[in-house]
């Protein structure tokens, strides 16, 4: 499936590895179980490590690894299942995760902007046709009402600043 990062299509350098398979000589995405079990050994290799994190597992468990993980892939099993939005914000805003935050699963264009606002910078897109729509979708609004970690100004603050400036 096409991967779009920061609005641009990119090649996926990471290989998803099943728990029972040996690790290839490449950047890998491992399961949450494997990360928690093998943690330090994974990071001792000379390849970037990412994790595929299920949407019903507390994302704060990633705290010990957050500075070393290259990728966290969160999952939208259906686009209507919004748990990964909260996980994404916690990762970015609570744990200060700076690596790639990847949306996977049923990732459709009408949710791109919500994902970006919650801190996703990489989208694994289901429909080929949606790839070209990324730029349009993530710029479909110029104004936002509530603050998230993306730091965009919101009216409550903007109006306040204007009132104070006046």
């Amino acid at each position: 499936m096409p991967l779009v990062k920061n609005g641009k299509p990119v090649a996926d350098a990471f290989v998803a590895v099943a728990d029972e398979d040996t690790l290839p000589d490449a950047p890998v995405l491992v399961s949450a179980t494997r990360l928690l079990a093998e943690g330090e050994a994974l990071f001792a290799r000379n390849h970037p490590v990412g994790v595929i994190w299920p949407n019903d597992k507390d994302v704060l468990l990633l705290e010990p690894f957050v500075d070393r993980l290259a990728v966290v892939a969160l999952i939208f099993p259906k686009f209507r299942d919004g748990r990964a939005y909260s996980q994404a914000r916690l990762l970015r805003e609570r744990l200060g995760f700076k690596g790639e935050l990847r949306a996977t699963g049923n990732v459709l264009r009408d949710q791109f902007l919500l994902m970006v606002r919650c801190g996703f910078d990489a989208l694994e897109i289901v429909k080929e046709g949606d790839v070209a729509a990324v730029e349009k979708e993530i710029h479909s609004y110029s104004v936002f009402y509530q603050p998230t970690g993306d730091g965009r100004p919101v009216p409550l603050r903007a109006r306040l600043a204007a009132a104070r400036g006046a």
Partner: peptide, 16 residues
């Protein structure tokens, strides 16, 4: 109204 603004198209809480 404060709640309206905060909740309008809230990116985290649109698919509860």
């Amino acid at each position: 109204e404060i709640i309206r603004q905060w909740s309008t198209l809230h990116p985290e809480f649109t698919y509860l």
